[in-house]
Simulated scan of single mutants.
Amino acid sequence: MYAAPSSVPVGVDPTRASIARVYDAALGGKDNYEIDREVLRQVATKAPEVRDLAWSNRNFLTRAVRFLAQQGRITQFLDCGSGLPTAENTHQIAQRLIPDARVVYVDNDPVVLAHGRAILEDNPHTHFVAEDIFQPGKLLANDEIRGNLDFDRPLALLQVGTLHHYTADNADDLMREYIEALPAGSFVVIAHFFDPETPRSSELAKKMEELFIHSPMGSGRFRTADEILSFVDGLDIMPPGPDKAPGLAVCDHWWPDGPKLTPLNQVEQCIAAVVARKP
Protein backbone atom coordinates (compact mmCIF):
# COMPACT_ATOMS: atom_id res chain seq x y z
CA MET A 1 0.00 0.00 0.00
CA TYR A 2 1.17 3.53 -0.75
CA ALA A 3 0.20 6.64 1.14
CA ALA A 4 0.40 10.34 0.37
CA PRO A 5 -1.21 13.14 2.41
CA SER A 6 -2.16 14.91 -0.83
CA SER A 7 -4.34 11.97 -1.86
CA VAL A 8 -6.89 12.59 0.90
CA PRO A 9 -10.03 13.93 -0.82
CA VAL A 10 -10.74 17.58 -0.07
CA GLY A 11 -14.16 17.86 -1.68
CA VAL A 12 -15.99 21.14 -1.17
CA ASP A 13 -14.16 22.20 2.01
CA PRO A 14 -13.21 25.84 1.31
CA THR A 15 -10.66 25.82 4.15
CA ARG A 16 -8.46 23.21 2.47
CA ALA A 17 -6.64 23.64 -0.81
CA SER A 18 -7.39 21.02 -3.46
CA ILE A 19 -4.86 19.86 -6.05
CA ALA A 20 -7.57 19.91 -8.71
CA ARG A 21 -8.78 23.39 -7.75
CA VAL A 22 -5.25 24.85 -7.57
CA TYR A 23 -4.62 23.51 -11.06
CA ASP A 24 -7.93 24.98 -12.20
CA ALA A 25 -6.94 28.36 -10.75
CA ALA A 26 -3.57 28.22 -12.51
CA LEU A 27 -5.34 27.68 -15.83
CA GLY A 28 -7.65 30.63 -15.19
CA GLY A 29 -10.71 28.52 -14.33
CA LYS A 30 -13.55 29.50 -12.01
CA ASP A 31 -13.97 26.30 -9.98
CA ASN A 32 -11.64 27.26 -7.14
CA TYR A 33 -11.61 28.98 -3.76
CA GLU A 34 -9.50 31.70 -2.16
CA ILE A 35 -7.44 29.03 -0.36
CA ASP A 36 -6.49 27.51 -3.73
CA ARG A 37 -5.46 30.88 -5.18
CA GLU A 38 -3.40 31.50 -2.04
CA VAL A 39 -1.21 28.50 -2.94
CA LEU A 40 -0.33 30.16 -6.25
CA ARG A 41 0.29 33.52 -4.60
CA GLN A 42 2.69 31.95 -2.13
CA VAL A 43 4.72 30.20 -4.83
CA ALA A 44 4.62 33.35 -7.00
CA THR A 45 6.67 35.19 -4.37
CA LYS A 46 9.68 33.22 -5.65
CA ALA A 47 8.40 32.19 -9.10
CA PRO A 48 6.09 34.83 -10.63
CA GLU A 49 5.43 32.61 -13.67
CA VAL A 50 4.15 29.70 -11.53
CA ARG A 51 0.98 29.41 -13.64
CA ASP A 52 3.17 28.40 -16.58
CA LEU A 53 3.73 25.03 -14.89
CA ALA A 54 0.05 24.24 -15.45
CA TRP A 55 0.02 25.48 -19.04
CA SER A 56 3.16 23.58 -20.00
CA ASN A 57 1.64 20.45 -18.45
CA ARG A 58 -1.69 20.96 -20.24
CA ASN A 59 -0.22 21.67 -23.66
CA PHE A 60 2.03 18.62 -23.39
CA LEU A 61 -1.02 16.46 -22.62
CA THR A 62 -2.66 17.62 -25.85
CA ARG A 63 0.36 16.73 -27.97
CA ALA A 64 0.98 13.41 -26.20
CA VAL A 65 -2.60 12.16 -26.56
CA ARG A 66 -2.62 13.20 -30.19
CA PHE A 67 0.58 11.19 -30.72
CA LEU A 68 -0.87 8.14 -28.97
CA ALA A 69 -4.02 8.19 -31.07
CA GLN A 70 -2.37 8.96 -34.41
CA GLN A 71 0.99 7.21 -34.24
CA GLY A 72 0.60 4.76 -31.37
CA ARG A 73 -2.80 3.50 -32.57
CA ILE A 74 -4.00 3.57 -28.98
CA THR A 75 -7.78 3.40 -28.53
CA GLN A 76 -7.91 3.09 -24.71
CA PHE A 77 -6.80 5.67 -22.15
CA LEU A 78 -6.55 5.44 -18.36
CA ASP A 79 -6.14 9.03 -17.19
CA CYS A 80 -5.06 9.16 -13.55
CA GLY A 81 -5.80 12.23 -11.46
CA SER A 82 -7.83 13.88 -14.19
CA GLY A 83 -8.66 17.04 -12.26
CA LEU A 84 -11.54 19.39 -13.01
CA PRO A 85 -12.77 19.27 -16.61
CA THR A 86 -11.41 22.08 -18.78
CA ALA A 87 -11.08 22.61 -22.52
CA GLU A 88 -9.18 19.96 -24.47
CA ASN A 89 -9.48 17.02 -22.11
CA THR A 90 -8.07 13.61 -22.98
CA HIS A 91 -11.34 12.26 -24.37
CA GLN A 92 -11.87 15.31 -26.61
CA ILE A 93 -8.40 15.00 -28.12
CA ALA A 94 -8.55 11.23 -28.57
CA GLN A 95 -12.15 11.01 -29.80
CA ARG A 96 -11.60 13.75 -32.35
CA LEU A 97 -9.17 11.34 -34.02
CA ILE A 98 -10.76 8.02 -32.98
CA PRO A 99 -14.48 8.57 -32.28
CA ASP A 100 -14.92 5.33 -30.35
CA ALA A 101 -11.75 5.67 -28.26
CA ARG A 102 -12.46 4.67 -24.67
CA VAL A 103 -11.31 6.97 -21.86
CA VAL A 104 -11.54 6.29 -18.13
CA TYR A 105 -10.73 9.19 -15.84
CA VAL A 106 -9.78 8.38 -12.25
CA ASP A 107 -9.95 10.81 -9.34
CA ASN A 108 -11.00 10.66 -5.71
CA ASP A 109 -12.10 14.29 -5.32
CA PRO A 110 -15.92 14.30 -5.10
CA VAL A 111 -16.13 17.72 -6.77
CA VAL A 112 -14.09 16.48 -9.73
CA LEU A 113 -16.26 13.37 -10.00
CA ALA A 114 -19.51 15.34 -9.88
CA HIS A 115 -18.35 17.80 -12.55
CA GLY A 116 -16.95 15.10 -14.78
CA ARG A 117 -19.92 12.76 -14.61
CA ALA A 118 -22.33 15.61 -15.36
CA ILE A 119 -20.39 16.70 -18.42
CA LEU A 120 -19.90 13.17 -19.76
CA GLU A 121 -23.42 11.90 -19.10
CA ASP A 122 -24.10 11.53 -22.83
CA ASN A 123 -20.67 10.16 -23.81
CA PRO A 124 -20.88 6.33 -23.78
CA HIS A 125 -17.14 5.90 -24.37
CA THR A 126 -15.92 8.03 -21.45
CA HIS A 127 -16.26 7.36 -17.72
CA PHE A 128 -15.22 8.85 -14.37
CA VAL A 129 -14.22 6.40 -11.63
CA ALA A 130 -13.66 7.18 -7.96
CA GLU A 131 -10.32 5.72 -6.82
CA ASP A 132 -7.08 6.93 -5.24
CA ILE A 133 -4.41 6.93 -7.96
CA PHE A 134 -1.78 6.28 -5.29
CA GLN A 135 -3.39 2.91 -4.52
CA PRO A 136 -2.69 1.10 -7.82
CA GLY A 137 -3.66 -2.36 -6.60
CA LYS A 138 -7.14 -1.25 -5.63
CA LEU A 139 -7.53 0.95 -8.71
CA LEU A 140 -6.50 -1.79 -11.13
CA ALA A 141 -8.99 -4.20 -9.55
CA ASN A 142 -11.89 -1.76 -9.93
CA ASP A 143 -14.76 -3.44 -11.78
CA GLU A 144 -15.79 -0.27 -13.63
CA ILE A 145 -12.27 0.29 -14.93
CA ARG A 146 -11.95 -3.37 -15.95
CA GLY A 147 -15.39 -3.27 -17.53
CA ASN A 148 -14.54 -0.31 -19.76
CA LEU A 149 -10.91 -1.00 -20.63
CA ASP A 150 -9.58 -4.23 -22.12
CA PHE A 151 -6.31 -5.10 -20.38
CA ASP A 152 -5.61 -7.72 -23.03
CA ARG A 153 -5.04 -4.93 -25.57
CA PRO A 154 -2.58 -2.00 -25.47
CA LEU A 155 -3.71 1.08 -23.60
CA ALA A 156 -2.23 4.38 -22.46
CA LEU A 157 -1.61 5.13 -18.78
CA LEU A 158 -1.51 8.88 -18.18
CA GLN A 159 0.19 10.28 -15.08
CA VAL A 160 0.27 13.88 -16.26
CA GLY A 161 0.91 16.31 -13.41
CA THR A 162 0.18 13.71 -10.72
CA LEU A 163 3.29 11.95 -9.44
CA HIS A 164 4.87 15.11 -8.04
CA HIS A 165 2.02 15.08 -5.52
CA TYR A 166 3.27 11.70 -4.30
CA THR A 167 6.13 12.93 -2.13
CA ALA A 168 7.44 9.66 -0.68
CA ASP A 169 10.62 8.05 -2.00
CA ASN A 170 9.00 4.87 -3.34
CA ALA A 171 7.17 6.34 -6.33
CA ASP A 172 9.12 4.03 -8.66
CA ASP A 173 7.60 1.04 -6.83
CA LEU A 174 4.14 2.55 -7.27
CA MET A 175 4.70 2.96 -11.00
CA ARG A 176 6.15 -0.54 -11.31
CA GLU A 177 2.87 -1.93 -9.99
CA TYR A 178 0.97 -0.03 -12.68
CA ILE A 179 3.33 -1.04 -15.46
CA GLU A 180 3.27 -4.73 -14.55
CA ALA A 181 -0.50 -4.68 -15.13
CA LEU A 182 -0.23 -3.17 -18.61
CA PRO A 183 -0.21 -5.40 -21.70
CA ALA A 184 2.68 -5.24 -24.17
CA GLY A 185 2.40 -2.33 -26.59
CA SER A 186 0.94 -0.02 -23.95
CA PHE A 187 2.27 3.49 -23.39
CA VAL A 188 3.05 5.37 -20.19
CA VAL A 189 2.88 9.18 -20.26
CA ILE A 190 4.34 11.27 -17.43
CA ALA A 191 4.66 15.00 -16.83
CA HIS A 192 6.38 15.96 -13.59
CA PHE A 193 7.79 18.96 -11.70
CA PHE A 194 11.48 18.91 -12.62
CA ASP A 195 14.80 19.78 -11.00
CA PRO A 196 17.08 20.38 -14.02
CA GLU A 197 20.21 20.18 -11.82
CA THR A 198 21.61 23.40 -13.24
CA PRO A 199 22.60 26.10 -10.74
CA ARG A 200 19.93 28.69 -11.53
CA SER A 201 17.02 26.39 -12.37
CA SER A 202 17.75 23.92 -9.58
CA GLU A 203 17.70 26.73 -7.03
CA LEU A 204 14.29 27.85 -8.33
CA ALA A 205 12.96 24.26 -8.33
CA LYS A 206 13.97 23.82 -4.69
CA LYS A 207 12.32 27.12 -3.72
CA MET A 208 9.09 26.15 -5.49
CA GLU A 209 9.12 22.70 -3.91
CA GLU A 210 9.52 24.20 -0.45
CA LEU A 211 6.65 26.62 -1.04
CA PHE A 212 4.30 24.02 -2.55
CA ILE A 213 4.91 21.46 0.19
CA HIS A 214 4.42 24.03 2.97
CA SER A 215 1.44 25.66 1.27
CA PRO A 216 -2.20 24.75 2.05
CA MET A 217 -1.95 22.17 -0.79
CA GLY A 218 0.86 20.30 0.97
CA SER A 219 2.57 18.64 -2.00
CA GLY A 220 4.70 19.33 -5.05
CA ARG A 221 8.01 17.50 -5.32
CA PHE A 222 10.55 18.46 -7.99
CA ARG A 223 12.47 15.36 -9.03
CA THR A 224 15.62 15.01 -11.15
CA ALA A 225 15.80 13.42 -14.60
CA ASP A 226 17.13 10.15 -13.17
CA GLU A 227 14.34 10.03 -10.59
CA ILE A 228 11.62 10.62 -13.18
CA LEU A 229 13.11 8.15 -15.66
CA SER A 230 13.15 5.49 -12.92
CA PHE A 231 9.33 5.49 -13.21
CA VAL A 232 9.59 3.99 -16.72
CA ASP A 233 12.51 1.65 -16.11
CA GLY A 234 12.52 -1.21 -18.62
CA LEU A 235 10.28 0.56 -21.13
CA ASP A 236 11.19 1.87 -24.58
CA ILE A 237 11.39 5.64 -24.24
CA MET A 238 10.20 7.71 -27.18
CA PRO A 239 12.45 10.43 -28.62
CA PRO A 240 11.11 13.85 -27.54
CA GLY A 241 11.60 15.43 -30.94
CA PRO A 242 13.10 15.05 -34.42
CA ASP A 243 16.75 14.00 -34.37
CA LYS A 244 16.61 13.71 -30.56
CA ALA A 245 17.78 10.71 -28.59
CA PRO A 246 15.12 8.90 -26.54
CA GLY A 247 14.79 10.50 -23.13
CA LEU A 248 13.20 13.07 -20.88
CA ALA A 249 12.47 16.59 -22.13
CA VAL A 250 11.11 19.80 -20.74
CA CYS A 251 7.35 19.67 -21.47
CA ASP A 252 7.42 22.56 -23.93
CA HIS A 253 10.21 20.86 -25.90
CA TRP A 254 8.44 17.49 -26.25
CA TRP A 255 7.42 17.51 -29.94
CA PRO A 256 6.31 21.17 -29.99
CA ASP A 257 3.74 22.19 -32.58
CA GLY A 258 6.09 24.78 -34.04
CA PRO A 259 9.29 26.72 -33.43
CA LYS A 260 9.69 28.62 -30.17
CA LEU A 261 10.04 32.30 -30.98
CA THR A 262 10.94 33.19 -27.39
CA PRO A 263 13.13 31.30 -24.93
CA LEU A 264 11.50 29.38 -22.11
CA ASN A 265 11.38 31.14 -18.77
CA GLN A 266 12.91 29.52 -15.71
CA VAL A 267 9.58 28.08 -14.50
CA GLU A 268 8.86 26.45 -17.88
CA GLN A 269 12.21 24.69 -17.56
CA CYS A 270 11.05 23.11 -14.30
CA ILE A 271 8.42 20.71 -15.62
CA ALA A 272 9.44 17.75 -17.79
CA ALA A 273 7.84 14.86 -19.64
CA VAL A 274 8.52 11.37 -20.87
CA VAL A 275 6.52 8.98 -23.05
CA ALA A 276 7.49 5.31 -23.06
CA ARG A 277 6.18 2.06 -24.58
CA LYS A 278 6.07 -1.32 -22.90
CA PRO A 279 7.82 -3.86 -25.16
Score class of each variant (00 low, 15 high):
residue 4 A to L: 05
residue 6 S to E: 03
residue 7 S to R: 06
residue 7 S to D: 14
residue 8 V to T: 15
residue 9 P to N: 14
residue 9 P to H: 15
residue 15 T to R: 06
residue 16 R to Y: 04
residue 20 A to K: 05
residue 21 R to K: 15
residue 21 R to Y: 07
residue 26 A to G: 15
residue 26 A to T: 09
residue 40 L to M: 14
residue 41 R to F: 00
residue 41 R to W: 05
residue 41 R to Q: 13
residue 44 A to G: 15
residue 50 V to S: 08
residue 51 R to C: 11
residue 51 R to E: 13
residue 53 L to F: 09
residue 56 S to N: 10
residue 57 N to F: 03
residue 59 N to S: 12
residue 59 N to V: 06
residue 59 N to G: 06
residue 59 N to C: 09
residue 61 L to D: 00
residue 62 T to Y: 10
residue 65 V to D: 04
residue 65 V to P: 01
residue 77 F to W: 00
residue 78 L to K: 07
residue 80 C to R: 03
residue 81 G to Q: 01
residue 82 S to C: 02
residue 82 S to Q: 01
residue 85 P to E: 10
residue 87 A to W: 00
residue 88 E to Y: 12
residue 90 T to E: 00
residue 90 T to L: 11
residue 94 A to F: 04
residue 94 A to K: 03
residue 96 R to E: 15
residue 98 I to H: 09
residue 101 A to Q: 06
residue 101 A to Y: 00
residue 101 A to W: 07
residue 102 R to E: 08
residue 104 V to G: 10
residue 107 D to L: 04
residue 110 P to H: 12
residue 112 V to S: 05
residue 112 V to W: 01
residue 112 V to A: 02
residue 113 L to W: 03
residue 113 L to T: 10
residue 117 R to V: 11
residue 118 A to E: 14
residue 119 I to F: 03
residue 120 L to M: 09
residue 121 E to V: 12
residue 125 H to Q: 08
residue 126 T to A: 08
residue 129 V to H: 01
residue 129 V to D: 03
residue 129 V to T: 08
residue 132 D to Q: 06
residue 136 P to A: 12
residue 136 P to I: 06
residue 137 G to Q: 14
residue 140 L to E: 01
residue 141 A to C: 05
residue 141 A to Q: 08
residue 142 N to D: 14
residue 146 R to Y: 06
residue 146 R to P: 01
residue 148 N to S: 09
residue 149 L to V: 01
residue 152 D to P: 00
residue 152 D to V: 09
residue 153 R to C: 09
residue 156 A to H: 04
residue 156 A to W: 02
residue 157 L to M: 08
residue 161 G to T: 09
residue 169 D to V: 15
residue 170 N to V: 09
residue 170 N to G: 09
residue 173 D to R: 13
residue 173 D to I: 07
residue 174 L to N: 03
residue 175 M to F: 07
residue 179 I to S: 02
residue 179 I to D: 02
residue 186 S to H: 06
residue 187 F to V: 07
residue 190 I to C: 00
residue 198 T to K: 12
residue 198 T to L: 13
residue 199 P to S: 04
residue 200 R to I: 15
residue 202 S to P: 02
residue 204 L to H: 07
residue 206 K to L: 14
residue 215 S to R: 01
residue 216 P to A: 06
residue 218 G to I: 08
residue 218 G to A: 13
residue 221 R to G: 04
residue 222 F to T: 07
residue 224 T to W: 00
residue 224 T to K: 08
residue 225 A to M: 04
residue 227 E to R: 11
residue 229 L to G: 03
residue 232 V to G: 08
residue 233 D to M: 00
residue 234 G to M: 06
residue 237 I to C: 02
residue 240 P to D: 11
residue 241 G to R: 08
residue 242 P to C: 13
residue 243 D to H: 15
residue 245 A to M: 09
residue 246 P to K: 12
residue 246 P to Y: 13
residue 247 G to W: 08
residue 247 G to P: 11
residue 253 H to T: 14
residue 254 W to G: 12
residue 255 W to R: 13
residue 260 K to D: 14
residue 261 L to M: 11
residue 263 P to Y: 03
residue 263 P to S: 05
residue 264 L to D: 13
residue 265 N to G: 12
residue 266 Q to N: 14
residue 268 E to F: 05
residue 268 E to V: 10
residue 273 A to S: 13
residue 274 V to W: 11
residue 275 V to L: 15
residue 276 A to E: 03
residue 276 A to F: 06
